[in-house]
């Protein structure tokens, strides 16, 4: 009995070791490919940054496209380009590594599935990143502009814009990942339509008096300001 158990365990261990031995070259190839691309990406990003700095790219961008600094306030344009180069190489390294894993291990099921799905994941990640950045930027812009226009509901407006963009982004990401496409479309339609309907009802029925009072107050304020001579000059 004990011999049989021992034999069975040895046989399982042997198979596991054999599987590991078959996978090891693939894993090694994956790591080598990833490290190689990491290194190339790092070097290229550094070279790109140096070239752009020598060309005065940051100064040119700050003069011609000041909004770029608003999108990426903590990074200078040349740093941003350097990072994009680096991450492109890292992504390419992952894909090449997966191919190398497949070639090294003679197992093509995993790599085939991953390689087929990687573009979806990359696309979804990019969408998520852009959507988040857009939501943050636009909501902050709306908030600051609203406050400077003396709108008491500036925060509400900003939150509404933020969630609107995030909901659209989430729907696009899920759609891009091919996850529950029908449910997502249906859910998004219901949610989005619901938000618009709720806002319309709130403004049209619930807050009718509030809105009319607010508009009247705003109109009377504008008239009063027009009639009043300007007494304060900021410049």
């Amino acid at each position: 009995m004990w011999n049989q158990v021992k034999q069975s365990l040895q046989s399982s261990m042997g198979r596991a070791m054999e599987m590991l031995a078959r996978l090891l070259p693939g894993i090694l190839a994956f790591i080598v490919a990833l490290l190689l691309f990491l290194f190339i990406g790092w070097i290229l990003a550094w070279i790109v940054r140096r070239i752009l700095a020598a060309l005065g790219f940051d100064e040119r961008m700050s003069r011609s496209a000041p909004t770029m600094a608003d999108w990426s306030p903590r990074l200078t344009p040349s740093q941003l380009v350097g990072r994009i180069v680096f991450w492109c190489f890292l992504t390419a390294g992952v894909m090449v590594g997966v191919s190398a894993f497949e070639a090294g291990s003679s197992e093509n099921v995993v790599s085939g599935w991953i390689l087929g799905y990687v573009p979806h994941i990359v696309g979804a990640a990019v969408l998520l990143l852009i959507g988040n950045m857009l939501a943050r930027y636009v909501s902050r812009s709306v908030l600051i502009a609203g406050v400077n226009l003396n709108l008491s509901y500036a925060r509400l407006l900003s939150m509404g814009v933020r969630w609107m963009i995030l909901v659209i982004t989430a729907a696009m990401v899920l759609d891009h990942l091919d996850l529950g496409s029908n449910i997502v479309e249906l859910g998004f339609g219901i949610l989005f339509g619901g938000i618009v309907l709720a806002l319309a009802l709130a403004v049209g029925l619930g807050s009718r008096d509030l809105v009319s009072r607010s508009l009247e107050r705003e109109a009377s304020r504008v008239v009063a300001e027009e009639q009043q001579p300007e007494r304060v000059h900021h410049f």
Partner: peptide, 13 residues
């Protein structure tokens, strides 16, 4: 560049 310069200056008003 703690935050976007347009936002920063808008928040000063």
């Amino acid at each position: 560049r703690t935050l976007g310069r347009a936002h920063l200056l808008g928040a000063l008003t």
